[in-house]
Design a binder for these strands. Structure first.
Lengths: 377, 377
DNA sequence: GTTCATTAATTCATTATCTGAATAAATAAG
DNA sequence: CTTATTTATTCAGATAATGAATTAATGAAC
């Protein structure tokens, strides 16, 4: 971003921006754009000179832990992706300390393989209700224990600051960083995948609930005596939309094999989707029902939060073509037209990569704040 | 509030507070507490001298428009209640311009009767989705028209600034002003009465949706083929909990007379409640069902917003004893215990008075801002 | 090519805002 | 009556932000 743009953005005069950035450039925290990098100027006048964070201020590792897989990513301080890794590893069966040991080892190994010697912080995204301030996982569908001090445990093992975040919140943050439209007003990001989560942004900032966590929207009960959910309840949104729910029901319909790991992988899910697209009526009905639940869910979000944007994202969007007819019918049948018109609904095809991107961005931002504090002192 | 307290509250040094308040006291905007008014000091040290807004800076009229009644209130600039009035008047049948004429006349008459010659602003609370910034009622269950520029219409007729607000938001604001606990963290106020509304506060500030309105939580559909709702849908929260819904069903059960006005009054509702308390099984079942819906509603709020406080308020709390057993059962059966424990649930018996208090407070605050701007210029 | 218009960035004196430290004021406790 | 304690004010000094003027770098026009 160029200096004038920064000024307009935060409402300061160019003079002030110049003054403040000058010292940061001196200290090497910011670097000015190389004139050669700029394309030919399209508007007359002196061209903008953009400022970037230096890439040598250390790096951050982002990690996402699913039911039976781990995603890792290494990003430098300029925000550039340096490396990423995907690991299949069941985590559900592990006891709390084992889990933290495995994660710490995985992170250390990843840092070693990628030659990252300047890792300044770790960002971790996981399912469940996460207290981001205290770094505690209050509850998670993938953990047996409750109130697990995951950040402290990892921080101790790795001797680095660890930031943890709900995975849907992390993805919402990443999506908003990629699209400026989602950084103004209110944006609700409904993530459908292994589970169903919701990240809610107000003016680009993540909404924080009572314990500085996000939302557990996926466990809103939509149908009084609906299917069993991982949370112990029945009829939750997740119990219709999540991969495990669709796979479980597909298994009962056509006796397909159980997933080799605890949760179905991408191939298994694609198999179901393909078969439904080919016209299998029972599977089609599954997706039709899931679409209806998705419509009901979005309707609740609209009537409760009145967001400017609703983003449907995550691996579950792979079947959006199958979900859409019943989704739209359900949405229309139960929202006041004036309110429905206010919310723009977007489908963002997003893989799990974005999750690690989200936590990394948050961790980077925390580092920026630390730098600012350091500078102030 | 005393000067030191103001300083602690807004994070400024006593020196700055003294300096700023001194000019306001000079201008007569603030008045210092009379030493005689203070009780005997309970702590040693120089006693606090509290500052109040002067009561001669003009007054504000707050008005609430229901289906068939109007509530009015006159408040001076010190925040003291000067007069209030309750009028039975069906408004539903009026055309937009007629409605604004009637409201303007009612307000003028009220000001005349109470001898208020220094009215500086009007605050109006009504049901529906209200754009508080533009002063437009986008949609309301009590209006035939849509996108009615109510604030502009009234402002023109009365030649004074008019602020409009959703009624549940106004009540939430008033409740939070009365209880400081509700001004930190997140507070969701579920108002049950003529309809069902929800006002949501973050750090004491009203949450604003896409068009700077509040929430239409009362029209979340809870049961797929439930009873008819005023919004045109079926199975909305309101269609179980609102006065009109309970009365409609009670009429079918025991053939009680229809309400004389369009909506049942307080006496009619009390009649139903008394009869249920006396043991009428069919009426008891009505309240049991309503309690269940209330539990489901609060569960959605908890899993979606994770508020620190949930306040159940409005005339509908008159039957809380009848609602409570099924309310608690429904709530427990579908929330994750860790999350449920985070939200404190309060029942605040609140009459419609609070609605006018809420809009008056907001209008007063707007005036304060204007004064501040005036002073700055 | 030279000049002009246009936009970006910087310099610097000025202004507004807030604060710490010292002081005065008002009370309760001993 | 003295001392401890808390509140409020005064005032010089620190800090941050800005407007106006200036310098810089480019495209467009001739």
């Amino acid at each position: 971003m160029a200096r004038v743009e920064i000024g307009q953005h935060i409402g300061m005069s160019p003079a002030s921006v110049s003054e403040l950035t000058a010292s940061l450039v001196d200290e090497g925290i910011l670097v000015v754009e190389d004139a050669a990098d700029q394309g030919p100027g399209l508007i007359r006048g002196r061209p903008k000179v953009r400022l970037f964070f230096a890439d040598s201020l250390g790096s951050v590792i982002g990690i996402w832990t699913g039911f039976n897989r781990i995603e890792l990513r290494l990003v430098d301080s300029a925000g550039r992706n340096r490396a990423s890794r995907h690991i299949e590893r069941p985590l559900r069966s592990l006891e709390a300390n084992e889990l933290m040991d495995v994660l710490a080892e995985t992170i250390t190994a990843f840092a070693g393989e990628t030659g990252a010697t300047d890792v300044k912080a770790i960002g971790l995204a996981c399912q469940g209700y996460v207290d981001t301030r205290d770094g505690v996982v209050a509850w998670s569908p993938v953990l047996g224990t409750r109130d697990l001090p995951l950040a402290a445990g990892l921080s101790e093992r790795l001797d680095k600051p660890v930031l943890i975040e709900n995975d849907a919140s992390a993805m919402a943050f990443a999506i908003a960083q990629r699209n400026p439209d989602f950084r103004s007003g209110r944006t609700a990001c409904l993530m459908v995948g292994d589970g169903v989560g919701m990240g809610f942004l107000i003016q680009g900032e993540l909404y924080r609930g009572a314990r500085f966590g996000g939302s557990e929207f996926g466990h809103v009960r939509l149908r009084r005596s609906g299917p069993q959910c991982r949370c112990g309840g029945r009829g939750c949104i997740e119990a219709y939309l999540a991969d495990y729910a669709l796979h479980r029901d597909a298994q009962l319909i056509d006796h397909r094999p159980a997933p080799t790991l605890l949760l179905p992988g991408e191939e298994a899910m694609n198999g179901i989707v393909e078969q439904a697209r080919a016209g299998d009526p029972a599977l089609l009905h599954l997706f039709q029902e899931a679409g209806e639940v998705l419509g009901d869910s979005v309707a609740i979000l609209i009537q409760t939060l009145e967001p400017d944007h609703i983003v449907i994202c995550g691996p579950g969007t792979r079947a959006m073509d199958l979900l859409r007819p019943s989704f739209e019918a359900a949405l229309e049948s139960q929202t006041i037209p004036e309110l429905r018109a206010l919310a723009a609904i977007h489908v963002v095809e997003s893989s799990l990569d974005l999750l690690t991107e989200g936590v990394v961005m948050q961790a980077l931002r925390e580092l920026d704040l630390d730098l600012a504090r350091l500078k102030a002192a």
